[in-house]
Write a protein that binds this DNA or RNA. Structure first.
Lengths: 244, 244
DNA sequence: GTGTAGAAATTGGTTGGACCATTGAACCAC
DNA sequence: GTGGTTCAATGGTCCAACCAATTTCTACAC
């Protein structure tokens, strides 16, 4: 057979066109997350399509987490929208809770280590100051409440991702973080979860501040390793309690 | 059409309930990717909801890539579906230039190395055979056409992600791959792009087959490094041609 | 004036029915 | 067999209502 390429033609693509028009509108109006966009009825009228078509398009955006609908109130932008976005829904199927948690951690281990190394290379003085500020807050919280505060801990890590010079790290790890916490409905009966990871936050920062990428990578790996250990401990507890 | 049972829906939050009922149906009937599911009209009738509601639910699944609709033909399952799936939409915005390409490569460097290492630990005989098969095809293509074939190359890498035991790797790296190729409209004037990466495919596979995770990681890093070099070379060319 | 309960308007959610566009299979002429 | 034609099935779009949650306005009591 002769090889030749013919891209499939696209005749009807109403709702896609609606989404593109909407994305253009959002950009023109400089709508930011939290703002309300026009009602479905108005959109249907302006775009000369039926309200049903508008709804199907908005349903797609809602599924992607770009938009939130509140009955009786309106449709609100949930994230920045631009025309050149790539949407890639991650689906993590099956397995028990423990497996899912470990899988998100495997991704995070790879990215966290790389982000820390890149950060050690690229962070400037301002970045370092911001990271250390978040670290101080976290440590204070830890010492005063005698336990890890996942909120302040997450702030610290995010500061690193932002300083590493590649916004993709923050976006992907944030997705992993959310996936992790969605699995995290049953705390697996682990007390002092994350406790062991505490000291590595400071050592990792020290390596970053010293512009030592390999050291930062090593400390990041140790940090994640303690979390994985906690998780395994929890899984073991769970199996034990299942037995009785 | 096979006989099936679907209980009617009960309260509000219809389309969510529709999806749950549909997921249950797919599991009961053991539908596999590629198979056709009932028509919208039949689903509406069985579930005692309007066809529009069924359509909104299916639109959500379509947005998640779980299902594909073909007008005049039907709605087909595109991926395995189970009740305990978690979906995490990942939307990536990129600058479409050299910087964007390098950013996708930074993510890929981190994940590719980790996936190779995990694969070296976990791959069984069948996985290894499949990977080597893809590798042979790629090498043959390379030698016969005297150049990298991005299609066969990608197949090889995907086989590794699948064998690493964590489906998130394949999904996230696929997103990076798509982002990369969306920027890749102008090949930056680099001839023999990817040529230098060729030998490392075999060496990486050898490490995986020998269950040597750190070796596999090292070879993966070398492989990505050659691609990054090609890219930098291309960027330099581009700047040069801009000058004149 | 102030506060609050209730009515009215607004807005997303759902329904049912209609028609269009595409597909695929059965059928037919050649 | 090849190439049309017909026709039923199916997803895509549209319309005009009505439902349910929310917000806004208004009238009334104090």
């Amino acid at each position: 057979m002769t090889e030749f390429s013919l891209p499939p033609i696209q005749t009807t693509a109403r709702d896609d066109a609606v989404l593109k028009a909407l994305a253009g509108f959002v950009m023109r109006e400089k709508l930011e997350p939290g703002e309300r966009l026009p009602t479905e009825r108005i959109l249907a009228e302006r775009l000369k399509v039926s309200r049903n078509t508008v709804r199907e398009a908005l349903t797609r955006w809602e599924g992607l987490g770009l938009v939130e609908r509140r009955q009786g109130s309106g449709t609100y932008l949930k994230a920045a929208v631009s025309l050149d976005m790539l949407h890639m829904p991650l689906t993590l199927a099956g397995g028990n809770d423990f497996t899912g948690l470990m899988r998100t951690l495997e991704i995070r281990r790879a990215l966290e280590a790389e982000a820390a190394a890149l950060c050690a290379i690229r962070a400037d003085e301002d970045d370092l100051a911001e990271i250390e500020r978040k670290l101080d807050i976290m440590e204070e919280e830890f010492l005063s409440r005698a336990g890890m505060s996942s909120e302040e801990d997450w702030e610290f890590h995010q500061a690193i991702y932002r300083a590493c010079g590649n916004p993709l790290f923050e976006q992907i790890i944030a997705a992993m973080h959310e996936l992790f916490h969605r699995f995290w409905e049953h705390p697996l009966g682990v007390r002092d979860f994350g406790h062991a990871s505490f000291p590595y936050h400071r050592t990792m920062f020290n390596c970053i501040a010293a512009h030592d990428p390999e050291g930062a990578r090593a400390e990041a790996l140790k940090l994640i390793a303690t979390v994985e250990d906690d998780l395994k401990r929890g899984a073991a507890n769970l199996k034990l309690s299942d037995r009785k």
